[in-house]
Design a binder for these strands. Structure first.
Lengths: 222, 222
DNA sequence: GTCTATAAGCGGATAGAC
DNA sequence: GTCTATCCGCTTATAGAC
């Protein structure tokens, strides 16, 4: 998918190494700006300056602001989907959910601006993303919901609505990236602080896992 | 606090009923636009049109865009704080947390744009809000953290980090307002659908409460 | 209090030299 | 591929009539 967008969006410059590197630098800079100000609030010359080139030169690589925004979004969505793809039906629920939650929080730490770009797009009603949401992501969520329902049917998970469980996992983990400013104001450090990260992870795991795993010795059926 | 901002921000028009009503209509319209596009992305004439008056007329009530934004934010923050203020140390943890979570989700349903405005401001690093965050809200969160620690000390709550618990509650409840577009794409309805609201509330309560309340017959100490 | 007209400057995009 | 110069529409804010 990244390839598809790439070729569709930028005929020029793909060939040379320097062009490639420039395009990457532009996309990195654009991610920062778009994540903070949204599409309309972002200024193309601000992005150009952050990428270290002139505005017309940026527009040589991406012909319009919208083209650039779409490219950044596509690249981000792909990364965002990865952890969920790996949620594994074959392993036991505790291990699978622990791995998924850990991976999501790790993503909030390593790619906070990517998380914020996605949040920004959602706040605006996902105008540039609706097709992707209703196809790729929907399919993935439906598939993983069935995995969770399977665990519930086997009594290995307490009965919870699968989609709301997924939403709860997304919400709690992404919150640390999206509301970073609030978290730093209220707690001091953010996820980049190792101790804070560990405490956040432990607390989220404790709450969510205890909330959905069966009580000791009482496997449940619906 | 609303009063304080009010008088500081708009000398004109406070006196007459019509002026008051106009100012309210402007603030309502501004909330919608600012929540969707952020400060820089919002257009003042778009707000004026939504409020049903001309752009210069809007600028008669709020002299600058920033002044209007500040007024909307102040009004929103006040409402946003209310549920937390009511978290009651004297009642038992299950009842108090149930009431708080319910109130927060209810707020996401009744005031989704207010929630989104707040989220938008956070994504931008809370430039217009940092003083409020480090004073009013910080004090409140510290106080409520002590309430939660009290419950833990008495063995009425499992040991969890209080702030991370508060973050988890905020994250899960606000998610339904802030990520409404995603939720509708993936689940069909949103919180305005009564059944969906009930399921969301039940799931969140089940997960969070089971995650933090002591197991049957085994009250814990740290 | 509300409007029309307009000033002043910003932002996206293009032309064309190098 | 990259730059300077520039066009043109849009946006905030003000002036001034009613």
């Amino acid at each position: 998918m990244a390839d598809e967008v790439w070729s569709r969006v930028r005929a020029p410059s793909r060939k040379t190494r320097a062009g490639e590197a420039n395009a990457e630098r532009i996309l990195d800079a654009a991610l920062e700006i778009f994540a903070a100000f949204g599409f309309r609030g972002s200024r193309i010359d601000q992005i150009a300056a952050a990428a270290g080139l002139s505005k017309p030169n940026l527009l040589y690589y991406f012909r319009t602001k919208e083209e650039l925004y779409t490219a950044v979004l596509a690249r981000t969505l792909d990364m965002w989907l990865d952890p969920l793809r790996e949620l594994d039906a074959s392993s036991d629920p505790r291990a699978a959910l622990t791995a998924y939650i850990t991976r999501k929080l790790e993503y909030s730490r390593s790619h906070p601006t990517a998380s914020r770009l996605f949040a920004m797009e959602m706040l605006q009603g996902a105008p540039h993303l609706s097709s992707a949401l209703t196809s790729t992501l929907l399919d993935l969520v439906e598939a993983k919901s069935r995995t969770i329902e399977g665990w519930i049917g086997e009594g290995r998970l307490r009965p919870v609505d699968p989609k709301h469980l997924i939403f709860a996992i997304w919400a709690t983990t992404q919150h640390y990236a999206d509301f970073d400013a609030q978290i730093r104001a209220l707690a001091g450090p953010g996820l980049d602080d190792e101790d804070f990260y560990e405490t956040a992870l432990a607390t989220i795991l404790r709450i969510l896992l205890e909330g959905v795993l069966p009580r000791e010795g009482e496997p449940q059926r619906l």
